[in-house]
Nucleic acid binder design. Sequence first.
DNA 1: AAAATGCTCAACCGCACGGAA
DNA 2: TTTCCGTGCGGTTGAGCATTT
Length: 282
Amino acid sequence: MGVNHTSNPALEMGRPPCFEDGLNKGVWTAHEDEVLGNYVKLHGEGKWVNVAKATGLKRSAKSCRLRWLNYLKPDIKRGNIALDEEDLIIRLHRLLGNRWSLIAKRLPGRTDNEIKNYWHSTLKKKVQESSSNHCKSKKKPMMEPSAESAESLKMDSCLSPNKDVINCTTSSSAHPFPLLFPVDEHPEAFTPVEPSIDGGLGKEIVAEQPPESGDEIFPVNISCGNDALWDSLMDFDVDQLCLSEILEENFASFSEFDSMTVGECGINGCQDDPLPSFSDLG
DNA sequence: AAAATGCTCAACCGCACGGAA
DNA sequence: TTTCCGTGCGGTTGAGCATTT
């Protein structure tokens, strides 16, 4: 694409400028960009509420932050998403769902907003197409965690209002996230609990850390019934995964979570020690 | 050539979280 | 402990562009 920042393409596309409550909304002008850029160069990021006061910009703190992070930040790459980046986005989305900020952290120079837009405009279709093709030749359907599974879970009222609390159903075909080990083979890892008080449907599944396992072996305490689930996955995967390692993995393993183990997935962080498969833990 | 439709992407909105008072 | 405030995140909107009919 090759956006020319000086010409401010935002003026060519997007919402028209407008004033409301004394705040300027809509596209940013080149002058506003310059003012904001100068301010951040002088004072650094953060303290966005001070930007408007200090510079006279009629913009909200949020708007300033968003503009800086998504557009003005010097190391931002725009457009021309490479194939390896595309593949990585697909993998990470399969792993993380719609956690765009986390995905973006794994793609230097890319913003969550850009990735989110790219996903919805381009990759979603690709994944769905490949998924449908894949499903034709597979017995079990491949689940996409956020777009399909999470949505179905919402429909089933199984996704708690708390975004991090996921009350899994016992349906093995509808995981809200890609399980790293097969439920059928490790029923002991899933402890049925009472339905939540707010009317959760069916049995919940709690995957607990196997008692025998040490942190160095299985540093994930997966519990569908508490907030640790996603954060554990985040800590476990994202904070340790390196782009090069993800790119070296076999993509196919990510598309077969229904029968996958940690070992098959090959998520081994930045250390040399590969994580064992779940079946090694018992 | 014109209208309709789809696509892209910057920006906004609402909610949740964490820290400070 | 509670409230307030700043920040971050994900979903959604809407204008302009591109493509199709």
